[in-house]
């Protein structure tokens, strides 16, 4: 079939119209949220379905950022997310290097144990995690949330690193070792820098999960407003200010616009990361 003719065919046009129209509806909640964040509450009430604000004004953002403490929540989110991503990547890369490139005592036991727990029926494991972090005395700092988010086995990332490190030619580390490079230096200076694609994929995935986490920060910040993250802060804000629609929209925008921006800028890595989860 001639591609030029196919492109003009009514079916082709219809598909585009449908995909585009549904696509607008699909992201409408975010457009609505961002537009509402620039309106006043009075304007919100009378504007009905009108999307654009009369004039873009930032008082909602000022109110959310200062009065409602979203500046605190925002930086908590940033600190938690950055720490978790860095620690998780490091831990998984170390594990992936040892498991992927060397045979050592206990290797098989380790791999089997980590994999087997994925298939075990679990109870409500949040409670033991919560009491464990509490008994370590970390429940009054961001470290409690960070440790709880870092905790556990990251099977997907480990598998990605294992597969990648195993695929690297073995001459690489051998020649380095002949030149007198030790185990750690070979890893840190030669092998790790080569694994940038895996680091990028894992970092993006972990960034998304941690930035959006809700249950862990919720239980670790009960009664500790200064440790709240954006999601938890938003939850409290809406509970306390049911009539401040546009303040809510500004607060929600502060939470969502950063992750949306990172996604749009680096969407290839997001898609690859998610695809990696299904391909294994």
């Amino acid at each position: 079939m001639n591609p030029a003719r196919r492109k003009r065919s009514p079916v082709y046009v219809l598909v585009h119209v449908l995909l585009f129209a549904i696509g607008i509806v699909w992201i409408y909640p975010f457009i609505w949220m961002i537009m509402s964040s620039f309106k006043t509450n009075n304007e919100y009430i009378v504007s009905g379905i009108k999307l654009l604000p009369q004039s873009f004004q930032f008082s909602n953002y000022k109110r959310a950022w200062e009065t409602a403490h979203f500046s605190v929540y925002f930086w908590n989110n940033v600190i938690i997310t950055v720490s978790v991503v860095v620690i998780v990547i490091l831990v998984c890369a170390l594990t992936g290097y040892a498991v992927g490139r060397y045979r050592f005592k206990g290797r098989l036991v380790f791999v089997t144990a980590v994999t087997a727990t994925m298939f075990m029926p679990k109870g409500y494991t949040i409670i033991p995690i919560y009491s464990l972090v509490n008994s370590l005395g970390l429940n009054n700092s961001l470290w409690g949330v960070i440790l709880a988010e870092v905790g556990g086995a990251h099977v997907l990332f480990i598998l990605l690193f294992v597969a990648y490190f195993r695929g690297l030619p073995k001459e690489l580390s051998e020649s380095a070792e002949i030149d007198g490079s030790g185990f750690v230096r070979t890893f840190a200076q030669i092998v790790l820098p080569l694994s940038k694609p895996i680091i990028a994929t894992a970092a993006i995935m972990q960034f998304m999960w941690t930035w959006n986490a809700f249950l862990m920060p919720l239980i670790f910040t009960l009664g500790k407003p200064e440790l709240r993250t954006l999601g938890v802060g938003m939850f409290q804000f809406v509970g306390e200010n049911t009539m401040d629609w546009t303040g809510m929209a500004a607060a929600a925008s502060i939470s969502l616009v950063p992750i949306l921006a990172v996604f749009i800028a680096m969407q290839r890595y997001f898609i690859e990361g998610v695809s990696g989860a299904i391909k294994g």
Binding site: Y97, V99, F104, G123, L132, F183
Partner: peptide, 28 residues
């Protein structure tokens, strides 16, 4: 020595696994 390094490399993940995966499953 290399065996020891390998064990040292998996140690952080092993500790996190025991504390935040294995222990919580048992205690749940």
């Amino acid at each position: 020595r290399r065996e020891l390094w390998c064990l040292a490399f998996i140690a952080p993940q092993l500790a996190l696994f025991l504390m935040f995966t294995a222990y919580p499953i048992v205690m749940s």
